[in-house]
Nucleic acid binder design. Structure first.
Lengths: 314, 314
DNA sequence: AGGCCGCGTGCTCATGTGAGCAATCTTCGT
DNA sequence: ACGAAGATTGCTCACATGAGCACGCGGCCT
C-alpha cells in the first residue's frame, strides 16, 4: 500500500467507524468510488490500523480458545480478555468468574465434582451463582486442613460450591503434606479419609488450579513448606504445584519423596479424568500453566489472554 | 438491558468482531434470531462494550474536530488521536505532522505565510514535505534572535518552510524581548525591521504555537526572561505566551510594560487575521490552549485529543 | 376482570456491503 | 517502442444488515 492510500484508508476508517458514514458517503467526501472505499477499509483492517476491542469483564477471546483447543489438544478452553484490566487481581477475578460460568453451563452437569482448593478456587466459589446445579456433590481431592491465617478456606470453598449446587460436600480431613511418609500412609488408611479418596477417584469432573513455585505459595503460608523447601524444589526444576504436588516443565514430579508425603489424588489419576478443568491465571503461573497443559493434566483450561499467548507462541 | 442480554451481547460481539461470523450464523450458534443478534450488537455498541480505535500516527478524531468547530467558533480544527501513543513527545510529533498536513492542503495556498517560532514549529517545518507549495513566502511575525544553545532555530524554521514551499523567507532581525521600551521602539523603526513587520501584517495566513508559563519556556532558555520573571507573570495570572506575549486565561495581556518591550505583531493584530493556525499540544499547554481559543487568537486549532477534551468539557 | 400501555419480538423491505469479473492502466523486460 | 504480466479500477450481483412496522405478551390501573 503506498503512502497516499495509507492516509486515505485512515481517513476512510475514521469516517466509517467514528462518524458512521456509509461507504458511499465516504466516497463522496474523499472523491473516490465507494468500491475503493471498501477496499481501503479492508486494507486498514489488514494492516492493523483498526483495533476492535470488547470491553467487558466477561469478554473472551474465541480465537485463542480455538487455537488452544486445536493446537494443545484440549477438549475445551476459555480465555478471558485482558482489555480494560487495571491490575492483576481484576484478571484473576475474571478468570475465576469464567471458570464459574463454565462449570455452571457444563453438560452434562457433574453429579460428583472433585475439587482442589486455593485462592483461585475460593474466588470461583464466590462467583458461582446459587442454584448453578440441582444436585452436584463436591468432594475434596487433596489434603487441606489449613494452618494459615484464614483457616478453613479450603473447606469453605467446597461447602460453598456444594451448597450453591444443591449437593453435599465431602471434606478430606487431612493436612496437605505430612512430615513422615508413614503418617501419610496411616492417614490414607483411615476409614473416613479412604472413603473420601475413593469418592474423589470416581468423580465425574474435576476442578483445580495450580500454584507457582515461589515464596508466596499457599503451602508456605500454611506452613507445610518452608521458603527453603521451595528454593530446593525450584533448583530441581519445579515450576509450580498441582494438588500440592510440585512438577517440572514437563509435568513430572520433581521430588518423589515429597510427593509420597502429599495426601490426595495422584497426578496420574488426575490425567485419566474425562473432565479436568484447570483455572490458571496470571504472569507468575505461566510456567505451571504450560506444564499442566503440556503434560495432559487438564482437558479444559480456563485462563487469561496473556497466558494463552504464552502457551501458544512461547 | 438485563444481565442475560448483556452477556449475550458480549458473546455476539465476540463472534461478530473477532470471529467474523454473520449475524445469521451468530443467531444459530446462540439460539436466537438474527434480528435479535443485530439488536444485541447495537446495544453492545451503545453501552460502550465495543471500542473501535484507529491506530495510526495520522489518525484524527473527527467528532472532536466537529465539536470544536461548532462549539468554540473555529473555522477549522484538527485533533490527532492519542491511541497508541507511548510518550508526550510522540504526541507533539503527531500534532506537528498534522499542522504540516493542514498547511500543505490549505486552499487557497497562502502567498505569504506569517510564522512564529519554537519547538513545535521547528517540528512542523521538519514534517512538511518538499514542494508543499509552489510559491509561498514566509515572514517572521515576532522577534527571535535566539541566544539559546541551539541558535538560529527560529531562522531555520522559517527558511526551511519557505524553501520547501518554493518561496523566500523574510527574517525579523530582532531579539524577542528588549530590556528597554525605547530600544524596542528604535528597533521597530529600523528600515529592515519595519519592512518585515509590514509584510507580516499583510500575510495571507499565520501559523504559530503557544508556550506554557513555566520555567522550561524557550524565553527562559533564551535568556529573555528569568525564572523569577515567569513566577511574577504566573502570579499575575499568566497561563502562557503567544508570540512572546504573556496572556491570562481570558487572553488578555498580563503585563503591558513587558508587552511594550516585545517585538512583533500585537495579539490584536493577530486576532484580525482571516487564517490564523495555532498548533498547541500537550498537557502543560492546556491552559494556554483554552486562552488562545477562548479569546479568538486563532481561527484554526491543531491539537491533541486530550487537550481537545479539556477545551470542550472543562 | 377488562382494557390500556409499553416493551420485546419476528417480520418486510430498502439499503449497505463484499466477492468476483472484465476492462483498463502500469510497469517492466526485450 | 512494443507487448506481456500484473496491478488497479469500476462494475454486477448476491448476500448481509438496519429501519420501520405489526403483532403479541405482560404489567398495571381502574
Amino acid at each position: 500500500m503506498d503512502a497516499v492510500d495509507e492516509l486515505l484508508s485512515i481517513r476512510a476508517a475514521e469516517l466509517y467507524y467514528e462518524e458512521n458514514l456509509t461507504q458511499e458517503e465516504i466516497g463522496r467526501s474523499l472523491q473516490i468510488t465507494r468500491w475503493k472505499v471498501g477496499r481501503l477499509l479492508t486494507q486498514a483492517k489488514e494492516e492493523g490500523f483498526v483495533r476492535i476491542e470488547i470491553l467487558h469483564s466477561r469478554a473472551r477471546r474465541p480465537q485463542l480458545e480455538r487455537r488452544l483447543r486445536d493446537e494443545r489438544e484440549l477438549t475445551d478452553a476459555v480465555v478471558v480478555s485482558r482489555a480494560g484490566v487495571r491490575n492483576e487481581d481484576e484478571l484473576q477475578q475474571r478468570v475465576a468468574q469464567a471458570a464459574a460460568d463454565y462449570l455452571a453451563t457444563l453438560h452434562p452437569r457433574p453429579r460428583v465434582l472433585g475439587l482442589s482448593w486455593g485462592r483461585t478456587l475460593a474466588d470461583v466459589a464466590h462467583h458461582l451463582r446459587d442454584g448453578w446445579s440441582t444436585a452436584t456433590d463436591v468432594v475434596q481431592i487433596n489434603g487441606g486442613v489449613s494452618m494459615s491465617q484464614r483457616p478453613g478456606t479450603a473447606a469453605a470453598t467446597a461447602v460453598s460450591i456444594a451448597q450453591k449446587g444443591g449437593g453435599a460436600a465431602a471434606l478430606l480431613p487431612s493436612p496437605a503434606i505430612l512430615e513422615q511418609r508413614a503418617t501419610k500412609e496411616a492417614i490414607e488408611a483411615d476409614r473416613v479419609v479412604a472413603r473420601v479418596l475413593g469418592a474423589a477417584r470416581s468423580a465425574d469432573a474435576y476442578l483445580f488450579s495450580a500454584g507457582a513455585a515461589d515464596h508466596r505459595s499457599v503451602h508456605v503460608d500454611s506452613g507445610y513448606l518452608s521458603p527453603a523447601d521451595i528454593d530446593r524444589l525450584v533448583a530441581s526444576g519445579a515450576v509450580g504445584d498441582v494438588l500440592g504436588r510440585y512438577i517440572d516443565a514437563d509435568g513430572r514430579i520433581v521430588d518423589r519423596e515429597l510427593d509420597a508425603r502429599t495426601v490426595g489424588l495422584s497426578l496420574d489419576e488426575l490425567r485419566r479424568a474425562d473432565v479436568a478443568i484447570a483455572a490458571i491465571a496470571g504472569e507468575a503461573k505461566r510456567a505451571v500453566a504450560a506444564a499442566v497443559v503440556g503434560s495432559g493434566l487438564c482437558t479444559v483450561l480456563v485462563t487469561d489472554e496473556s497466558t494463552a499467548h504464552h502457551l501458544l507462541d512461547g
